[in-house]
Amino acid sequence: MRTSCLHIISLLLPLAVALSACHPIEEFPADNSGNFEALWTAVDEHYCFFAEKDVDWNRIRNQYAPLITADLSKQQLFGVCADMINELRDGHTNLSSGFQTSYYRKWWSDYPQNYDARLIEENYLNFEYSQLGNVTYGILPQNIGYIAIPSFNSGLGNGNIDWILSSMASANALIIDLRDNGGGSMSYAETWVRHFIRQPLTAGYIQHKTGPAHDAFDSPRPITFEPLSADNIIWIKPVAILTNRSTFSAANYMTMCMRSIPGVIHVGATTGGGAGMPITLELPNGWSIRMSAVRVYDSQMHITEHGIEPTAGCAVDLDPAQALQGHDSILDLAITKLSK
């Protein structure tokens, strides 16, 4: 019996030693070349829009790798790496170090801004608007409610939104201004959307990667919102959404969701997109890389990464000449459409 015990233990010991061997994790040295390779690999394995943007990531590597030498300063290395990821043309993709964060700006800088908050606050609301959190709201002279949501970095709860909507109960319609809203949390956008639906809404689809290959994706899953309880305020009158090119990420997502609600019109300029939910990884030297990693589609299974065009007949830019006269041509068009 004692012998059998020793046999069992002598079998268990090497088994335990063998089992303690870890699954391998690819590692790169913390020198210039290693950091460049770590960055290229992280993007290669996680970025989700190579096909949509027709980016040949291997060609990009061959283009930038020869620029990496051991004598590059960290600022120079950062510059080469930032240039490389800017080839993705993605506002959600940033490289961050202790001294700089890279940012691809052309998705909005090549377009007119189409928004001046003071123009509305002064000429349409006469500075007599209310504010709750970062949201400003009031009723326009045409008896149309106006809500400006400048960001989803902070959000309102259902009770807050109930309060805002109930203050506009006498209005005939509602305008939600998402211009210059660069996004934030999708959950905050979802909270708003649920105040405009009376039945479950499949607002879009979401699709994540299942592995490092560029085409390794799970099947798209619906994003379905349930209506709020009867205790909450549900807005059922006409609604217009205003956007400009700086309507990005979670604001683009809210635009996408609202567009799937029948009767909602979308006025202004094409949104900035940002339909890839970003994740963050890091390099051996501690720099972090944020990139689009999860695809979000609209309810028609279109990827909105390149932006959402306004409703037919509702595309308009802010006219600088009219702005000098105190008119916001985008807001004016929305008022006209809702007043019909």
Binding site: M186, I206, H208, T210, I223, T224, V294
Partner: peptide, 14 residues
């Protein structure tokens, strides 16, 4: 969780 799956997606029901 899956390779690129976010907890937001799990919260949505996937």
């Amino acid at each position: 969780p899956n390779y690129g799956e976010l907890y937001y997606e799990i919260q949505l029901g996937n």
